[in-house]
Amino acid sequence: MTDLFKPIDLGKITTYPLGDRNSKVSDIDFAKKWVKGSSFEAFLEGLPNILAGSHVMEVVSSIVTAYKNRKTVMFAMGAHVIKVGLNPVVIDLMERGVITSIAMNGAGIIHDFELALTGRTSEDVTASLGDGTFGMAHETCSFLGDAIVKADRDTSGLGAAVGASIIEQNLPFSDNSILAAGARLGIPVTIHIAIGTDIIHMHPEFDPAKAGAASHRDFRLFASVAASLEEGVYLNVGSAVILPEVFLKAITIVRNLGHNLKNITTVNIDFIRHYRPTTNVVNRPTAAGGRGYNLTGHHEILLPLIAAGIIEKLD
């Protein structure tokens, strides 16, 4: 059998000049060396114009362009964004008028409220799960239970009710609260719950019917904001399942109702890449037009970097 095959003869291989080849990497796109004492703008301009280096700057540019053209910038976030200390960064962008709306999962109201009340949040689950005390802090469930009743009474969304309650009760650390900032600035903050996922669902003060109705009103409000996304930007930061699914359904609604939604920019930011954000945020909604980005890294680094880039470009 070995007599049938001989080592192939490479002597007649054809070649071409390297200069004629299209190359994906060029030295004109390289990073610039850092000069001690330089500005942050110089840092941004010194990033390599390759892969995430270029994508970060394209995301910054898309948000700045949307802001200058008075287009919508939707910011959807998992509660981890709160837990890594980024409320001041998000609130600053809200106050500057960059962010048009906020969307959170159900855990968002828990951590945001606890920060507003005590300046602290995020219990040690491992330490408290064994004796059944996990999620049993009284104030959290009592306050949010009352806010759910308020949402039902006022026929408001859950986000608006919690934000208004934080302001009305003058909680000592309310400056830390994204929900309070939304209520103060008139920026919609919508809450999208999944029954059974949050600690307040374990308590007798929780009214699932009223909470579900309030969250559904928030979903409709979210869809209303999404209807204005043409030439705008949608960011999904740290939500792997809930908000990508909510976004996909909202996109379906607004297109079904005849709203123009072809040229949008979508951005997913998380420390690992998940199926739903990649599919339902980055790829599917932009298939008919626009651009989707996946930025992989820690929120506590990437979000301040992007926010600082936006502010530099605005100024």
Rank of each mutant, 00 (worst) to 15 (best):
V81A: 07
V81C: 03
K83F: 00
V84W: 02
V84L: 04
L86R: 01
L86I: 02
P88Y: 07
V89G: 04
V89K: 09
I91V: 11
I91E: 13
D92G: 05
L93I: 04
L93A: 01
M94Y: 09
E95W: 03
R96N: 14
R96D: 15
R96P: 01
G97K: 05
I99M: 02
S101V: 01
S101R: 02
A103V: 04
N105I: 09
N105G: 15
A107K: 04
A107I: 09
I109K: 07
I110W: 14
D112G: 10
D112W: 00
F113I: 00
F113W: 09
F113A: 02
E114Q: 11
L115Q: 07
L115I: 07
L117V: 10
L117P: 06
L117T: 03
T118F: 10
T118C: 08
T118K: 13
R120K: 13
S122H: 06
S122M: 14
D124E: 11
V125C: 06
T126W: 11
A127L: 03
A127S: 12
S128N: 15
L129W: 12
L129A: 13
L129H: 05
G130S: 14
D131N: 15
T133N: 14
F134N: 03
F134P: 01
F134Q: 13
F134C: 01
G135H: 13
G135V: 11
G135P: 06
A137Y: 07
H138Q: 08
H138N: 06
E139C: 07
C141K: 13
C141W: 01
F143S: 07
F143R: 12
F143V: 05
L144W: 07
G145M: 00
A147K: 02
V149C: 14
V149Y: 08
K150W: 03
A151N: 10
R153M: 14
R153S: 15
R153Q: 15
T155K: 07
T155W: 00
G157L: 05
L158A: 14
L158N: 08
G159R: 04
G159W: 02
G159E: 15
G159L: 11
A160L: 09
A161M: 01
V162F: 10
G163H: 05
G163F: 03
A164Q: 14
A164T: 08
S165P: 04
S165G: 05
I166N: 11
I167N: 12
E168Y: 00
Q169V: 06
N170M: 04
L171A: 11
L171D: 11
L171W: 06
P172F: 02
P172C: 03
S174H: 12
S174C: 12
S174M: 10
D175H: 11
S177N: 13
S177Y: 13
I178G: 00
I178N: 12
L179G: 10
L179M: 12
A180E: 12
A181C: 00
A181S: 15
A181N: 07
A181T: 05
G182K: 11
R184D: 13
L185Y: 02
G186V: 08
I187S: 11
P188L: 06
P188R: 04
P188N: 09
V189G: 09
T190W: 02
T190R: 01
T190M: 10
I191Y: 08
I191T: 09
H192E: 14
H192L: 01
A194L: 06
A194T: 08
A194E: 15
A194C: 09
I195V: 10
I195Q: 15
I195M: 13
G196E: 07
T197R: 08
T197Y: 05
I199S: 13
H201P: 05
